[in-house]
């Protein structure tokens, strides 16, 4: 196809540049910002996962916290109760997130439009309540700390500890890079093109002979799995699991980050996450009602700035942005 490779070189260069940039930043920025960036990379991974559904398939979910939390609990609980080393807990968590999101997708995708939103929200709330219900295991609201149970990561000759800030940073960077490159690959793959076609006009896509339910389910599963991977990384890097991380705020956060950065762009979720986390960190020092910033940002986004930051840049200047 003619368009297939248009801008691929530039896009690839950009993505590798972003990853290299994050790698280099750890040697430059002061420790506090390195810690902030660690958090941003993990949460941006979550936003990347969310964006696959919202940005490239056009489905808005209000329940992604259940996938984030699936990964979180799968990784955390397997470390605590089965003593799994981090590099075994992570794939297990990814697998379980995939199963979870495929199952949920199969049910929720029977609905569409606002029903889809409400239903994802309700199921996510059930997940949240379940973590409270089984608090003998999960620690419920209070949560559990992983620090004592985290085994070192063995890398052949030597091993590293996830309690070390440098290890945390680079672990987060690797997780982030996987998701980031995956999203680039997806947008340029045949599957990704079908998804975009569904986003633009699902009836036409259907007429062209695509089984749109199957494609939506695939997108839903990929999206949920990456969200779960982010959750697992969160548990391993920050050594804490708790039901607050399954609450509705954690379903709304990736939506906000993605919209702010620009849905349907690979870089948007990262910009949105980074910006919002810094904004919240900054405003929480000024006002105790810092969540109001979240509210105002959301309002302004839909009223005045629907494409988001990267979306606007893409429209106006750099059209090849994936």
């Amino acid at each position: 196809m003619y368009v297939a490779n248009k801008g691929l070189g530039k896009a690839l260069a950009l993505h590798i540049g972003v990853i290299a940039g994050f790698f280099i930043l750890q040697f430059i920025v002061p420790p506090f910002h390195a810690a902030m960036l660690t958090r941003i990379m993990v949460l941006a991974t979550y936003a990347i996962g969310y964006n696959i559904l919202l940005g490239y398939t056009g489905l808005m979910s209000l329940g992604h916290a259940m996938f984030f939390a699936t990964g979180l609990y799968a990784a955390g609980l397997s470390v605590i109760y089965y003593g799994l080393p981090p590099l075994e807990a992570l794939p297990l968590a990814i697998l379980l997130s995939a199963v979870m999101s495929a199952t949920m997708g199969a049910i929720t995708l029977r609905t569409s439009g606002v029903f889809f939103l409400i239903v994802t929200m309700i199921f996510s709330q059930v997940f949240f309540l379940t973590t409270l219900y089984f608090n003998m295991i999960t620690g419920g609201e209070e949560g559990l700390v992983l620090t004592r149970y985290l085994k070192p990561i063995s890398l052949g000759l030597f091993s590293v500890e996830l309690t070390d800030s440098v290890v945390k940073y680079n672990f987060a960077l690797i997780i982030f890079s996987i998701a980031f490159l995956f999203s680039l690959w997806l947008t340029r793959s045949p599957v990704g093109r079908v998804l975009i076609a569904i986003r633009e006009n699902d009836e036409r896509a259907e007429m062209l002979g695509y089984n749109i339910y199957k494609y939506k389910l695939l997108a839903f599963t990929m999206s949920g799995t990456i969200s779960g991977m982010a959750g697992a990384a969160y548990a391993l890097v920050f050594a804490y699991i708790g039901s607050a991380l399954a609450s509705i705020l954690y379903s709304i956060n990736p939506l906000l980050w993605t919209l702010l950065g620009g849905a349907g762009t690979t870089i948007g979720p990262i910009i949105g996450t980074g910006l919002m986390i810094y904004i919240i960190d900054f405003t929480s020092g000024i006002t105790s009602s810092y969540l109001i910033v979240v509210g105002i940002t959301l309002m302004l986004l839909v009223l005045a700035f629907p494409p988001g930051i990267v979306g606007a840049i893409k429209r106006r200047w750099i059209r090849w942005l994936p």
Binding site: P30, P31, F32, H33, A34, A35, M36, R39, G143, F238, Y240, G242, A244, L245, D281, S284, G285, S288, Y290, L291
Partner: peptide
């Protein structure tokens, strides 16, 4: 003084902020 929003993830972040920034 930093607000943690009675939120564990924010709570851990506030500790980092105190220690590192």
């Amino acid at each position: 003084i930093e607000d943690d929003g009675t939120d564990p993830q924010r709570g851990a972040q506030v500790v980092e902020k105190f220690a590192l920034e």
